[in-house]
Design a protein around this nucleic acid. Sequence first.
DNA 1: ACCATATACCTAGCCATGCTATGTATATGG
DNA 2: CCATATACATAGCATGGCTAGGTATATGGT
Lengths: 113, 113
Amino acid sequence: MDNWKTQVKRGYLELCLLLLIQRHGRLYGFDLLEKLKAQGLPLKEGTLYPLLSRMAEEGSLSTVWETENLAGHPRKFYSLTKAGQASLSEMTVEFERMVRAYQDLQSPKKKGK
Amino acid sequence: MDNWKTQVKRGYLELCLLLLIQRHGRLYGFDLLEKLKAQGLPLKEGTLYPLLSRMAEEGSLSTVWETENLAGHPRKFYSLTKAGQASLSEMTVEFERMVRAYQDLQSPKKKGK
DNA sequence: ACCATATACCTAGCCATGCTATGTATATGG
DNA sequence: CCATATACATAGCATGGCTAGGTATATGGT
């Protein structure tokens, strides 16, 4: 089961990150960890940071370092790009399709013509 | 996106297979391919057969070859074991938790305390 | 001065699994 | 006799979550 829980998060995590960043406009990694934990999605740093890097590399996220007026370590802020918003739209459609397929397997509906 | 669609199916497919086999009692691979396609989940054989083998190996599914009264290639039927039903329960709980987390990211609710 | 702690980011390497491509076997129809 | 449909199987690739470890800056305690 532990392994299954790991596998089933693939793709889903990227979708959740896009949603969370879209909602807040811009977020940095450590803050994301806390917000995801509050949503019942506790990630490890070794999961989050490589994921954010990939998404930035692929063009879904833009990044800005913030060092001014800061006590402590500098923060890297992430925001959605146009491409990121487009990806989010596509992923939303697909994920909801999957949820509907799941729900239909749980309790099938008759086909309306 | 194509890659994302591949990744997001991890784990989810196993859940769907368990649901579908539970519903029908017993099913063979080729039939599963058709039923999944009808559900909007078109798998390739190279995805399904290794998955079924793994699930049988792990003890979630039991298998019976059927060669009697058959025209054509023998069929390998799969049924849920007790362990498979238990896995299905756990996966259902987890997947629905994920769906709720997703929905909450789409439109957050205030905390009722 | 020193160390622990909190904040904040990063990386190498493991491993599970969906997919591509290919192969095998049995029956039917032209 | 070959094409097609049915039916199962496997080798090898690519991807990404996780483990375990590392780096850096500031604060508070002794």
